[in-house]
């Protein structure tokens, strides 16, 4: 086993493009750290605008993650456990936001929940105004993050299979009991990583938010929007805020990775 090739199981020349790829991803992160104005770092982060943006981002990302769970877990269950023939088409459509440019998502949301949109007109009559509100940010984030949760949970459900559920049923467990005591515990790792991915995606949401929700400090201007705006006047400040987002993302991925290897 001294030959590294036999241990890795891949030809050695693969290492070169693999390293290039890793460098391509990692180098920009290094560049951000290198460009960060450490002297002004504290001052930049503690500015009112930064704090508002960070706090708003955390709040909205948490809210949309919860919304993703409420809507996404049932969706994943239906997709993974039904044999309805048109479900394949439904799945592709539901997962569309995964591949859609977020701006397109924002435009679509605008024509749905906007003042003159499909649902917006009715909602307007009912006195519900979504546009330009924090709720609009949550909707935009949920729209783009939901597929991440559904995809990873559905995969986990399919891997787990239905055999444990069948056994539970023969033991006298009703469907709700099976869901609570068997299905969800079995797919917990998938659920956790799906939730983390959805949170990360919500946190980074930019295109749909700026298109649909607008941009106002403390209400709709999340961290990514603040970074983009900050570039206009204060490039260094934008870099400092970017670093915050990178750190949060690294933490989130780290937590997800740890959960996955632990379970």
């Amino acid at each position: 086993m001294s030959d590294p090739r036999s241990r890795l199981g891949v030809p050695r020349w693969i290492l070169l493009p693999a390293l290039l790829g890793a460098g391509f991803v990692l180098l920009p992160l290094v560049a951000i750290v290198a460009r960060t104005p450490w002297g002004r770092f504290g001052e930049l982060l503690t500015s009112q605008a930064s704090q508002d943006a960070l706090w708003l981002s955390l709040r909205t990302a948490t809210a949309s993650t919860l919304l993703c769970l409420v809507l996404g877990v049932p969706m994943a269950l239906v997709l993974a456990r039904s044999s309805y023939r048109l479900l394949g088409v439904v799945r592709s459509l539901v997962l569309l936001p995964l591949v859609l440019p977020p701006v397109v998502g924002g435009i679509a949301l605008l024509y749905t929940f906007g003042r003159r949109g499909l649902l917006g007109q009715t909602m307007e009559v009912l006195g519900i105004q979504v546009a330009f509100s924090t709720a609009a940010v949550v909707l935009a984030q949920t729209f783009v993050a939901l597929p991440f949760l559904v995809v990873s949970l559905e995969g986990a459900l399919r891997t787990a299979g239905e055999r444990y559920e069948a056994v539970a049923a023969t033991l006298g467990a009703r469907p709700t009991t099976v869901l609570r005591r068997v299905t969800l515990p079995l797919v917990l790792p998938g659920l956790v990583s799906g939730t983390v991915l959805a949170f990360a995606r919500a946190l980074g949401e930019f295109g749909a938010t700026i298109t649909f929700a607008g941009s106002l400090q403390g209400r709709t201007r999340t961290l990514p929007l603040e970074i983009y705006l900050r570039r206009e006047t204060d490039a260094e400040g934008a870099v400092a805020l970017s670093l915050v987002l990178v750190v949060v993302a690294v933490l989130v991925i780290g937590v997800a990775g740890q959960r996955r290897s632990a379970l």
């Binding site: 069948a166 056994v167 049923a169 467990a173 079995l186």
Partner: peptide, 20 residues
């Protein structure tokens, strides 16, 4: 009648113990 109301137990080749 749904499986959970049948009082019919099943022991399969694979024990399928709930791992959690």
């Amino acid at each position: 009648v749904p499986a959970y109301e049948r009082s019919v137990g099943l022991l399969a080749q694979d024990p399928l113990l709930f791992p959690h």
